[in-house]
Simulated scan of single mutants.
Amino acid sequence: MSTTYDRTELISSISFTDIERDNGSFSEDKLVEAMDLFEQYGFIRLVNVFSHKRMANLNSHYRHRYRHLLQGTNKDDLRPLFTVDVEGPFNDETFYANPHIHSFVCNILGRKCILGAMSSVASYPGAPDQRLHRDTQAIFGDGPDDYTIDKNVPVYAMTVLIPLVDCTLETGCTKVWPKSHLTPNDSEALRIDSLDPEVFVGSALITNSKLLHRGGANLSDRLRPLLYMTYHRSWFRDFYGYEDRPPVNVTNFEYRKIPDNHKHMFSWTKNTYKYIRYKAMVKRLLPRFVKKQAGKIVRR
């Protein structure tokens, strides 16, 4: 394995003009090219999909709302990971359903795809390289690292990385192993030369959940906060890594603000079957409770 640093000609990337960005227009030619690159390499960098004004608004809210998590950490890897609440500028369809990103995601995962996670990882100065990983464990293999079958399965989950400061070789890029989503295990994936695509504020890096990657070391003297959202096919759920926190956190009040055409994206957190199960449990327990209370009254 060797590392090839930010070689622009080797990085699958699609750029948008300010007019295309503001109009939310994703031409058919660019969309097809982006999908082809993503299928081939397992990642795509979309350049200039958020305006500087919008990113400044997101960054301001983020720094204020999560300041208690950004003033120090006891994490050994200096990378606190936490759920970002769906509120304020994060409860805005131009963020979680950005026209370019959402169009791209839906063309791969289908129009019924859901939002599987909205989180942040903040790398402190001195944070080392992150551990090598794929965002989802194999679902058809004999073990979590057996992608013999999964590598031939169409994409069922993808991650969108959105930096709040420029992700450079100094602050730390997300190192990727191109085409590793097509390999049967990590040993085979590591035979591939890695890349360090720099991603600047206003742009996003989208990865196939089966792509081998890791966050780079933060060699700078400033915090490197990164937002990420995962999108799933409607039938897929990812529970790994969310044992102690919700993957998506949206209150009923905030949920009512979401446009009807996007409410399905939050179906994992607002699962109607959950309420059916609660109702069935109440029906099952209520008679027992009533009989118990009635017995107390009779005994009195």
Rank of each mutant, 00 (worst) to 15 (best):
T4W: 00
N152Q: 11
K292P: 01
L115Y: 03
Y147I: 08
F26S: 00
T207Q: 05
D77T: 06
I44A: 00
N152S: 14
T73I: 11
D142V: 05
R222Q: 04
A122G: 01
S120M: 04
N208A: 03
A294I: 13
R67S: 13
H52S: 15
P184Q: 07
L10Q: 03
Y156A: 00
V160S: 08
Y228K: 03
T159R: 10
D92R: 10
F236W: 14
V155T: 15
D244R: 12
S187N: 15
W235V: 11
V32T: 14
T8L: 05
R277L: 14
Y240N: 07
Y147S: 02
W177T: 00
T4H: 07
L37Q: 13
V201T: 07
T73D: 12
I139K: 08
N98H: 05
T148R: 12
L81A: 06
V32W: 04
S203V: 03
N107D: 10
H68R: 07
R67G: 01
D36K: 12
R45F: 01
G24I: 08
P125F: 09
T159G: 03
G72M: 06
R288G: 10
T183I: 01
H262K: 14
V105C: 03
I19T: 12
T168V: 07
H68N: 15
T230P: 00
C106S: 15
E188A: 15
M229H: 03
V84D: 09
R256S: 15
S267Y: 09
K151I: 04
L78N: 07
G110L: 09
R54K: 13
I258P: 03
I44V: 14
F266L: 12
S187H: 11
R245L: 13
P163V: 00
K53M: 04
N48W: 02
N208K: 03
L190P: 00
L285N: 11
V298T: 10
D77A: 05
R256D: 14
S187T: 10
F50Y: 15
P144K: 06
T8F: 04
S194L: 08
E93A: 13
H61M: 01
D221I: 05
S123K: 09
S2A: 12
L285F: 15
K53P: 00
A97W: 05
E198P: 01
K175A: 02
V121L: 08
G295F: 05
E9Q: 06
D77F: 09
T174K: 01
R284I: 06
V176A: 05
E198W: 01
F43P: 02
S203P: 06
S25D: 13
L169P: 03
V153K: 12
L164T: 02
V86C: 10
D244A: 10
G42M: 06
S267G: 06
D77C: 07
S194F: 07
E93M: 12
A117R: 06
P197E: 04
T73H: 09
D244G: 08
L10C: 02
